[in-house]
Nucleic acid binder design. Structure first.
Length: 932
RNA sequence: GCGGGCGUGGUGAAAUUGGUAGACACGCUAGACUUAGGAUCUAGUGCUGCGAGGCUUGGGGGUUCGAGUCCCUCCGCCCGCACCA
């Protein structure tokens, strides 16, 4: 009876599927465990061996938890809306729904091939109306709410209207426009339009204006990554910034909480750090500088600074070239220079600004600002090093304390005020945050924290500044001028946007119900004026109630809450019942790649907080533990062609020729040996190649790089599964190394794991004799091996060290084979222990033991210390730290007895070379060291 | 530049709390069985030396009876952010 993995795996896959073995219920007495994978975008290329790495790890964890008595939710679905499908539709005319469906079917087939324990009855697809109905519903909840900074939570907008009616906005500063102030009387006489516009400035999902990349030639708006080197990626057409009305999510209101609650998450430090950097909190002050009377009128410049303590060191001001005040304050004789500089800045792509070496540029506006404390006049400049999108788009230049300001002042010959005494040497800014402030009026002699407080107090007292926390985080753009995404449940009446669930839309027209289905289109061409394709469908856009919103939602809309839908996927009246979300609660383990470090994870956290604040779910963080899997890199193969000839030279001989390295498909190379016949057929140009061999073989060169189609190094899991089986594939992926580290794929190495499974099979069955398991009593040695393995595997799974688990299985099988063990007492529990890793073979063996039902329902065997406990140990005995002998002692032996025995040992005596004993170190259970 | 991580045989790696460095595999070498081997099994395999032994975890230094592990310093690689005020 051979290990016929093909027959075994096919049989059990069918059994699991037919009997819905992995179906999970929301009703259980068992403790719950939620194990989640980041769901994939189903691309046309299918899965390669790198993709399932995390899925295998989570599957092992889920199966282990299930064997350990948990009710485990382990679902899978598809992030099915997205740009590539739409792009493909534009090129081929095939509807994205059709290609997406096809790609999902292929993904599903590939996933099933690997033997995952997903409950497919819970599958979600973000592009299906029954799913995006609830994405739209959540959008409406965000639209109908505002962020109450006093209570630090999202609240219904109706509450805010009540507040406005009694007290205006006096206690609730407007996040969209800090200068907006009105009282109850003013609110009451606002028109409907004015009221709605005001509320819009508070809503969590709101409309504002933002710049997008507009491409005239393509007639469409482009995503950031579709713009390369300042031109469109497709066709290299010129692009320009265009201001468009867009939807946003007011994630900045959540910034503080998004930082604070990172503390309670079990995420890697790197991941938490990335989130913190992205949010980019900095403490400082906002300071208002008025301008001299001549050219300014009422204008003033507000800056943000993290160093208010350096206020006396201000020698100039810099505005971003895009700053709205630039034109107003520029003097007549500087106007031409400023216009020229602004034109120059427009030609600078972001890429240029990033990659170019530091070079100081800028232009004087002719205007002067008045220092709020000293009344000194300082010149106002513009420069590209000040970014419009950060802080207030304006800075105060403190050359003695900031490197960039210093370079700027030096370059343009602006006199530098020293506020650091000897620590500023005139050559380099003193930017360290240590020592005292000098030459600064009332701040003289203060250390930095004290000076910061004193400066802010003085600015507040003078009415020109305040303490301020600034965030790098921007509100999230939530509009896309695209077809293949969720339509907004929004209509415009008199150009005022209303949610479809509001009475004005809902009452008379029955248009309020969700979902707003994505209409079928014949053409995916963009609409007029940079609008999306939906704008072309006039009779969809225009309804009895109003004009529909023609933007669609971005890719992250559906993925920001999908983990909630899995809990209650069939629910037609709610996004998920409170009962279901209370039961499953947070995701206990979330596995995915680091590419979603900020986007997806930040948005999901925000949506969870908002839904929590509004009372829809009982937790405010979605993912308790996050594990990032490393990438599996490709191992490319090269052949070497002598330049300009048809000679293909083997790697070992290539130095003797002048050669070009050419990538060759890894599927026609065995290890490093090229299949010459297959190579000749691979490309017609190689059919008549001449080969220069070494030892009769053609040896390829190798290099580790990213796995990708263009490098011919993609390995398809289907091929590996066909050749070695899913169990071998699963274990080999884990055996490659730690889950969170990137490592290259090596198809050759899989043989070792495959041999291991065959060797394990031979413990249970013999090729000739068939099933050979006996009921003999196990020996102590056999029980020790088993229990050591039980212990090691559960410890390893607990710390996600799956590679060492696979090693332990190999050690276990090697040792049992050496002992000739074929005993049920050992082998039946072993089949359960390996089930999370190799479920098919485990299932087959379990059934052959005569068990009814599936091994999935078995219990992970209990570890018993008594089988593993030893009462003596072979100690390494060192002299001066170098191991010189091994001696066995009882674990409870006392030091005196050991010392006597060791010092009497002739080998030890020899190494002591007659020197006197200085110290005798004995660490029980570890080692012995004799110091002379 | 800032932040995070990493560096161990020919290769993937192990060493969980400072306690025998290189487990477990791949590859390689030799052998057994075989019509055959890309099956299976046995032995060997960090470097060096005939040997006893010596050396060895990117380089240098330190703490310690003892360091891959802790500290300092330098070098190299990877990831993230980047004229961030």
């Amino acid at each position: 009876m051979e290990y016929d993995f093909r027959a075994i795996e096919a049989q059990w896959k069918k059994y699991w599927n037919d009997n819905k073995v992995y179906k999970v219920t929301n009703e259980s007495d068992k403790p719950k465990c939620y194990v989640l994978d980041m769901f994939p975008y189903p691309s046309g290329a299918g899965l390669h061996v790198g993709h399932p790495l995390g899925y295998i790890a989570s599957d092992i964890y889920a199966r282990y938890k299930r064997l350990s008595g948990y009710n485990v939710l382990h679902p899978m679905g598809f992030d099915a809306f997205g740009l590539p499908a739409e792009q493909y539709a534009l090129e081929t005319g095939q509807h994205p729904a059709v290609t997406t469906e096809k790609n999902i079917a292929r993904y599903r087939e590939q996933l099933d091939n690997i033997g995952f324990c997903y409950d497919w009855d819970r599958e979600v697809r973000t592009s299906e109306p029954k799913y995006y109905k609830w994405t739209q519903w959540i959008f409406l909840q965000l639209f109908h709410s505002w962020y109450n900074r006093k209570e630090n939570k999202a609240k219904p907008i109706s509450e805010l209207i009540g507040i406005f009616e009694t007290e205006g906005n006096i206690n609730h500063a407007c996040p969209g426009d800090e200068s907006l102030q009105f009282d109850a009387a003013a609110w009451k006489i606002y028109s409907e339009k004015e009221k709605r516009e005001c509320l819009m400035q508070y809503r969590i999902a709101y409309q504002g204006y933002a710049q997008v990349w507009w491409c005239e030639a393509l007639g469409t708006v482009l995503a950031n990554d579709e713009v390369v080197n300042g031109v469109s990626e497709r066709g290299s057409h010129p692009v320009e910034r265009k201001n468009m009305r867009q939807w946003f999510l007011r994630i900045t209101e959540f910034a503080e909480r998004l930082i604070d609650s990172l503390d309670k998450l079990e995420w890697s430090d790197a991941m938490k750090e990335m989130q913190k950097n992205w949010i980019g909190k900095s403490n400082g002050a906002e300071v208002r500088f008025s301008l001299t009377a001549e050219q300014s009128g009422e204008n003033s410049i507000t800056v943000f600074t993290t160093r208010p303590d350096t206020i006396f060191g201000v020698d100039f001001m810099v505005l971003a070239p895009e700053h709205e005040l630039v034109d107003a304050i520029t003097t007549a004789d500087q106007k031409q220079a400023i216009d020229e500089y602004k034109t120059y800045v427009k030609t600078r792509s972001e890429r240029e600004r990033m990659s170019e070496v530091k070079q100081v540029t800028g232009c004087f506006t002719g205007a002067y600002a008045i220092h709020p404390l000293t009344e000194k006049q300082v010149p106002v400049w513009i420069s590209e090093y000040v970014l419009a999108g950060y802080g207030t788009g304006a800075i105060m230049g403190v050359p003695s304390g900031d490197e960039r300001d210093h370079a700027f002042a030096k370059y343009f010959g602006i006199p530098i005020t020293n506020i650091f005494g000897d620590r500023y040497n005139g050559e380099e800014a003193y930017s360290a945050k240590a020592g005292t402030i000098e030459n600064s009026g009332f701040l003289n002699g203060m250390n930095i924290p004290d000076a910061t407080d004193a400066a802010i107090n003085a600015l507040v007292k003078a009415g020109v500044g305040k303490k301020k926390v600034n965030y790098k985080l921007r509100d999230a753009g939530f509009s896309r001028q695209r077809y293949w995404g969720e339509p907004f449940p929004v209509m415009y009446v008199d150009d005022i946007p209303y949610g479809n669930d509001e009475p004005i839309i809902h009452n008379d027209h029955k248009l309020g119900s969700l979902p707003v289905e994505l209409p079928y289109v014949e053409s995916y061409k963009p609409g007029p004026e940079g609008q999306g394709p939906l704008a072309n469908i006039a009779d969809w856009v225009t309804t009895e109630a109003g004009q529909r919103e023609t933007n669609t939602m971005p890719g992250y809309a559906g993925s920001s809450w999908y983990f909630l839908r899995y809990m209650d996927p069939g629910n037609e009246t709610e996004f998920a019942s409170r009962k279901a979300t209370d039961y499953w609660n947070q995701v206990d383990l979330y596995i995915g790649g680091t590419e979603h470090a900020v986007g997806h994870l930040l948005y999901s956290r925000m949506w969870t907080k908002a839904l929590h604040d509004l009372g829809h779910i009982g937790f405010d963080e979605p993912f308790k533990k996050l594990l990032n899997q490393g990438m599996i890199q490709g191992s490319s193969r090269f052949v070497y062609r002598e330049t300009g000839t048809k000679k293909i030279v083997s790697a070992g001989l290539r130095r003797q020729f002048e050669v070009d390295a050419v990538r060759v498909d890894v599927s026609i190379v065995d290890g490093l040996e090229l299949d010459i016949e297959a190579f000749k057929k691979w490309r017609p140009e190689y059919a008549d190649s001449e080969f220069i061999l070494e030892d009769g073989k053609y040896i390829c060169g190798a290099e580790v790089e990213k796995m990708s189609k263009s490098k011919y190094n993609v390995v398809n899991p289907d091929d590996i599964v066909a050749q070695y089986g899913a169990d071998t594939f699963r274990m080999y992926e884990m055996f490659l190394g730690p889950i969170d580290v990137s490592k290259p794929w090596d198809t050759k190495g899989i043989e070792g794991v495959h041999r291991f499974l065959k060797k394990m099979w031979r413990l249970y069955a013999d090729d000739a004799k068939g099933w050979i398991v006996t009921d003999e009593k196990a020996t102590d040695a056999e029980l020790r091996i088993l229990h050591k393995t039980i212990k090691k595997i559960s410890e390893d799974i607990g710390r996600f060290s799956f590679n060492t688990s696979v090693s332990q299985f190999m050690i276990c099988v090697n040792e049992l084979s050496a002992l000739g063990c074929h005993k049920r007492e050992i082998l039946e529990p072993l089949a359960v222990v390996i089930c999370p890793f190799a479920p098919h073979i485990a299932e087959e063996l379990w059934q052959k033991f005569g068990n009814n039902g599936t091994v999935v329902a078995a219990s992970y065997p209990a570890y018993e210390e008594r089988y593993v406990a030893e009462n003596s140990k072979m100690y390494p005995v060192a002299v001066n730290g170098k191991t010189r002998a091994e001696m066995e002692f009882a674990l409870d032996a006392d030091q005196a007895a050991i010392e006597a025995a060791v010092l009497a040992d002739e080998n030890i005596v020899k190494w002591m070379e007659g020197k006197p004993l200085k110290k005798f170190i004995y660490v029980r259970g570890k080692m012995i060291n004799v110091v002379v």
